[in-house]
Nucleic acid binder design. Structure first.
Length: 350
DNA sequence: AAGACGGGGAA
DNA sequence: TTCCCAGTCTT
């Protein structure tokens, strides 16, 4: 690709961006911290989903100091419903490190930035190009889709090593004068024009430079192999209430799926009786089955499916409860961070 | 390289 | 259903 060609491509792309770009909250600031927050929230998450979370989050944590020392329970509550909760914990750890090690100045180079928790190659490039105007690549799903079509790259984007191919492509094409605009322009193009299915090529500012458009195979790109195979697990969920009307809640372990989030006790439904396991594990006695069919639903994660059968039981507490298990009033429960499938259960209780 | 890690919107 | 979303971390 010759110099003139690249120059025209860049200008068409950036000019289009300056005409058509969406007015998003994180585009009204140049504060690296706020850009950072937005980029973490946007990982595997749609813009429309992020906007209200972003606004609430920065209202609560306007500075890195305010986030660095916030209680994790409160932090997770702010993230509740957004998913991938380790993002919140990693963001806080990263921000804390910047406050303490870098005197609250977000690093402006890829080497230091990449060492921070939750900042991978994409997020580092996004912060550097958008907040610091550095000519750094920021390759996400949009960029791979757009450039696989424009340059007709047929590498399998499901393979980790393919990311490097696109990083080199961006390094070749990037507008050194407006790197932030260039990176965001490709992402906006991917979101609005160069969509996964039925791309709007007639509205595309760079269709003259797009090989796939000329070949007529935009819909075949990008190439992606991996298939998703999800396991299925059945659970009996015990919504257990005591004489005072308090409900039995459990805090999940600090690592793994939905770490540190709260839930109603759930017992994996295998061949044996869940009742005995529940009573023994939580040290309670079921006095009465109030509703054996409180709620039934599926919850689908990216890698597994939970089939939930929720029953309402009245219980009496025996001796002491295990750690991480408590009886709480409805009002108190509403202050705890809970995954969405537990919020669904909470909703049918009143 | 492959799997874990949420939740929702669109086809 | 299936795919994908402004990906990162762990093994």
């Amino acid at each position: 690709m010759n110099y003139q060609y690249k120059k025209e491509f860049r200008h068409h792309l950036v000019d289009w961006f300056n005409r058509e770009k969406r007015d998003l909250p994180w585009r009204r600031t140049s504060d690296p911290y706020k850009i950072w927050v937005s980029e973490v929230m946007l990982q595997q998450t749609r813009v429309d989903t992020v906007i209200p979370y972003y606004n609430r989050f920065l209202e609560k944590y306007p500075t890195m100091q305010s986030l660095a020392y916030a209680p994790q329970e409160e932090l997770l509550k702010m993230w509740e419903g957004l998913g991938y909760y380790s993002r919140a914990r990693n963001l806080q750890a990263g921000v804390k490190e910047v406050v303490e090690k870098y005197n609250a100045v977000v690093p402006d180079n890829r080497h230091d930035l990449s060492k921070l928790k939750g900042i991978g190659p994409y997020t580092a490039g996004a912060i550097l190009s958008i907040a610091y105007n550095k000519p750094e690549h920021a390759v996400d799903g949009n960029v791979m889709r757009v450039l696989s079509r424009v340059l007709h790259i047929e590498d399998d984007i499901a393979l980790p090593k393919t990311r490097k191919v696109f990083e080199e492509a961006v390094d070749m094409l990037i507008d050194e004068e407006h790197p932030g605009d260039f990176n965001q322009a490709i992402m906006d193009l991917g979101a609005m024009i160069c969509t996964p299915t039925s791309p709007k090529c007639l509205l595309c500012p760079v269709r003259d430079y797009c090989i796939a458009f000329h070949e007529g195979d935009t819909e075949q790109l990008p190439l992606k192999s991996k298939k998703t195979k999800t396991k299925k697990v059945k659970y009996e969920v015990y919504v257990a209430v005591d004489e005072q009307g308090n409900y039995l809640l459990e805090k999940r372990p600090s690592e793994g799926l939905l770490a540190n989030m709260w839930q109603f006790p759930m017992i994996e439904l295998t061949k044996d009786v869940a009742k005995d396991t529940f009573e023994k594990q939580y040290n309670v006695h079921i006095k009465k089955y109030v509703n054996k069919d409180l709620l039934k639903f599926k919850h689908i994660f990216s890698h597994l499916t939970w089939e939930m059968e929720c029953i309402l039981v009245q219980v009496k507490q025996l001796e002491h409860l295990p750690d991480n298990v408590h009886f709480y009033s409805i009002e108190k429960i509403k202050e705890l961070p809970m995954p969405v499938m537990m919020l669904k259960i909470l909703n049918v209780l009143n």
